[in-house]
Structures are given as C-alpha cells and as structure tokens.
Amino acid sequence: MKSLKRYLKIYWLSISRAYMTDLEYRFNFAASLLNTLFSFISTLIFFNIIYLRAREIGGWSQYELLTLLGVYLLIKGFFEFTVRKGLDRLPRYVRRGTFDGVLLRPVGSLFQVIASKLDFDDLSQILLAVILIAYSLKHLNWAFNPVYLSAFLLMIAAAAVILLANYLMIMTSTFYLTNIHHEDIYKNFLQMTRIPLDIYSPKVQFIFTYIVPLAFFVTLPAKTLLGKLNPILLVTAPIFALLNLYLAVKFWNFSLRYYSSASG
C-alpha cells in the first residue's frame, strides 16, 4: 500500500515535469480530436459502402461492426494515452545514454520509462470511442447487462495488458537493433485488428488468437459486449495476458545485459 502510494506520487511528479519541460507542447486537444474524427469518418464511409451491398459480413451486422470499430478506438486510445508515448522514448534514451539515469535510480526501470510521458491528446480517441460504442449499442437495442459489461471490462483489461506486453517486446529489441521501425510494425499490427477476425477459418483464428494475439485486442472484447463470446475465453484471456506480460518483462530484464551505455 505504502509502495503503491509512493509509485503514484513519483508517477505524478514525473509526468508533471514532462509537461513543464515540453516547451512546444500546447494543449492540442481540439486539433487532435479533429484529426481522429477525419480518419474515423473515412473509415465509416468505407464501411457504409460495403453495407450498401451486404446486410451482414461474416455474421456481423452493420451496427455490430461499428461497435467493433468503437472498441478498436478505445483500446488504441487507451494504450496510446497511458503507455505508448513513454515507451517510444526508449530508443532515444538508449542512444543518448540517458538510460543510465533510469537504471541507477531505485525505482523499476520499466516504470520510469512509461512514466516519462502521458499524452492527453489521446483522450480524444477514447472520447470518440465511447460515443461510437454507445451510439451503436443503442441501435442494436442493447439492454444494459452488468454481466456483459463486467466481462467486457475484463477483456479490455486483458487486451491492454497483451498490447503492452507485445509493444514492450518490440521496443526491447532496441537493445539489439538500433534502427527498428517500431512505429510501422505497431501500425500494421494494430490496423489488422479492425477486421472481425472470426470471419477466418478456425485454423487462422487460432493463429490470430494465441500466436499473433490480434483477436484479443478488438474482436473478442467486442463480442463480449455483444454477448457472443465463448465464456471459456473469460478464463483463458487473463491467463494468456499475464503470461505475455511475464515473458515480456523477462525479456526486458534479460536484454538490459546488452545495454552498453553510450560512452561519456
């Protein structure tokens, strides 16, 4: 309890300093919201064109698919808001040798990297996501169901953890390869999740669930919300998430051995 309080305090001090430092930073929420909105509208138009011809795709009706899109935005927004901007600073820290300071301090190194930045602009995605999900559910005549909702929150939490773990693994390769384009890997990776992955054959679905765990991010949480989830996944998802996180942190700690601390 005491250590949780300490970590929260350090988190707060560190984030507030990052903001004080960021000279170029202006509260760009409006611009960011517009940006999100535009890319969102183009996706919407795309979806609508498809649905002019078909009433259903792979068992997903139009508003169910919009729910899926909302969940996609929610996960992406949440991840980018909390974790991603901090982790993205890692290659710079390593190249400049500022990572030394991180390793010297008696607080977890991963925590410090994540706590180095919080981008409130990304709240715009979360906002839009919540509106979209609510709108779609209303059209689907979704009756409030606390069981589905808590199951959904559990699946969202699992998705967030799996995403964190996977992104962490990509970023950890910074210690071996200095010029990886993690940005592109991440984008391609995430974009694939906008498709309902259960349109594929069971074999491919298995791959996208447990090998490259894309289904966990969007498809499965969305299905939970719509009451279509195989309940067994409510058990396997958290286990799978923790396993991923465990492996990612292990990999991180192991890779620190290869940190060679830029000269100076």
């Binding site: 300490r6 305090k9 350090i10 040798g97 030394d100 301090r105 008696p106 100076g264």
Partner: peptide, 26 residues
C-alpha cells in the same frame, strides 16, 4: 554516480524540481 559529461537535472526546469523528485525516488 556523477558523470561530468552527463546531466541528470531536468534541463528546462530549476534544479529544485529535480531535487524534489529525487527526494521521493530515494
């Protein structure tokens, strides 16, 4: 560890801000 060529102070902030953060960290 203090390295003459590296700094741990926050560049754009007064030194006191770093001291306060270090107080919590340590």
């Amino acid at each position: 560890l203090v390295m003459g060529q590296k700094n741990q102070l926050w560049w754009d902030l007064p030194p006191l801000e770093t001291f306060i953060l270090n107080k919590e960290i340590y």
